[in-house]
Amino acid sequence: MTTQRRDSLALSVLLSAPAVFLLTLSVVPVLLLLQLSVAHHAEGGLWSPGFELSQYAQLLNPEFLKVAAFSFGLAIVTALITVTIAFPAAYFITRMRRRTQVAWLVGLLSTLSLSEVLVVFAFQVLLSGGGGLVKALVTLGVMAQPQSLYPNVAAVLVCLVYLVLPYIILFLYPALSRLDDDLPAAAATMGASPPRIFVSVTAPLVRGSLFSAFLLVIIFTVGSYLTPLVLGRPQHWTIGILINNAAMGTGNLPLAAAQAVALVLIMAVLFGLARGLGRARDASE
């Protein structure tokens, strides 16, 4: 046996463990989900194997489409706000002294140790009529009467942004710290003003990272469940809540599965489009 063949055999053996892992934990569940989504629904949360598309037909009802559109709208707005805040934050952190940078990064990482449940209920307390924020606003005279700041879509957005912001800052940090300080300096010696430097030099260099960060927020938030459930009104519910209602509320597991498949498919299409756009842009340069 040649060395090369032995090496490739060793590589195959090494790779087989993660391959089996991926197969059992992601491919098999997706296949089961697909099977469930076309099964026959029976009363009492039961189902029997079979093939029918009535669940998928139900997805076309305007109520579901409205919720799906709202979920994506919410995710896109969250992504816009988050990236807008995270980009300058990450940029300024990379320009700080080393020790200050580490303090910021440790602080950001430690906020990730709070579970989503904890954060959402903390926001519920904070924004409630008797909560600290409302009391402070009344004391300052900004608010006349104590009045709960939730449920509404703003509360949902604020909490979602809070949840994903540390991830996005940490995601952008390496790209921004690799940014060569000489590049904006060179642009300045050629007569570029600071805003012009940002538009012509800094932004194009980190465009790829900003785009990835944007997609990342959408992935994180499009399937959000707890935040809109606790801090929003029923009209702010997302696909995640509908899936839960179908599965747990009405016991229609095949419908829940079909809704989940639809969510995955829409995401896949979006990613395909994003990649296509990225390729076209690279090719044009």
């Binding site: 060569d180 000489d182 060179a186 003003s193």
Partner: peptide, 12 residues
């Protein structure tokens, strides 16, 4: 620097 516009070649 953007007002002076001295041409500069950087080490990098």
């Amino acid at each position: 620097a953007n007002a002076r516009q001295f041409g500069m070649v950087f080490q990098s």
